[in-house]
Design a protein around this nucleic acid. Structure first.
Lengths: 153, 153
DNA sequence: CTCTTAGTTCAAAATTTACAGAACTAAATT
DNA sequence: AATTTAGTTCTGTAAATTTTGAACTAAGAG
């Protein structure tokens, strides 16, 4: 597999965006590669070769991305290779998971206010305001996703 | 200043959440401390002492947090100390900035599809779908913020 | 004018993380 | 049975990040 300069540039760009979500550079580039490659499914060795990375880095990153539900692979009988692909059709589940994690911070903020001195009512109120908005987001975002689905029909 | 065990635990919890957004441990703990401390404003040295960190780490983290618009400080005449505090009342601006950055990824995805082979229409369509949802989010989230503001009146 | 205070800057140490390389496993092929 | 293939796991190391400590600045106090 040979990549154009433009493809290489996009892989790096996507890679850096993914890094910002907390994944390591190699994993980010793998995601980028799967976005831009002409084939939607790539083998372990294709990935390893075009990205010039070691087998261990490839293996670790692929497994981690599967843990995160970003990837899976398909197989073909009579062929031992795995064909890795982005789980693009399942991105709604990732969105839902992100939405759910919003409550984590809201909960901590409420815990904070419960623990705080009552001598700073304005400050406490500010914190509760943030928590309230987060809860609102958590409740409303699924509806927003639904509404978007409806605009597509 | 003396902190309860509960407060210490909350600082670490908040710290770790902040780390996930890409800040260093010390900066995360400072944010946590300002959330839980009995006084909403703390001096450089109060922060340094309760968190047991060096002056340089304190200085760097405080300046970085100000860059990120998470903190500012107030002063009092006849007192050279700075009293650092969370910019809690300005969190809407941070939210707005986050919303704006959503388009970055949407734009890259459109660039990706423009560059992709046309031989994988279904795959390309999936990518465009994600991009479309991101654009939708970008357009709708400010309205959601407005609606939330209205529920508070 | 010297000393203290509040904070900054810079170099070096410590820690963490990412990655490569080699040895390994398990299945398939010869 | 030996070899090849596809991928994993483990250990060491290079690189990046975070933090410290010490020297420094600038302003106010004595």
């Amino acid at each position: 597999m040979i990549l154009s300069e433009k493809q290489k540039a996009l892989i790096e760009k996507i890679g850096i965006m993914q890094e910002r979500t907390g994944m390591q550079p190699v994993a980010g580039r793998i995601v980028g590669l799967l976005y831009v490659a002409d084939k939607p499914e790539l083998t372990f060795d294709e990935i390893r070769e075009v990205l010039c990375i070691s087998k261990s880095a490839t293996s670790n990153a692929l497994n981690m991305l599967q843990q995160l539900n970003r990837l899976d692979y398909i197989t073909f009988s009579g062929d031992r290779k795995r064909y890795f692909r982005l789980k693009l059709n399942r991105w709604r589940e990732l969105v839902t998971k992100e939405i759910d994690s919003i409550t984590d911070f809201a909960d901590i903020l409420q815990e904070v206010v419960a623990e705080r001195t009552s001598k700073t009512p304005e400050y406490n109120q500010n914190i509760l305001e943030v928590a309230d908005f987060l809860k609102y987001l958590h409740a409303e975002l699924p509806k927003l996703l639904d509404r978007w689905e409806n605009t597509r029909k």
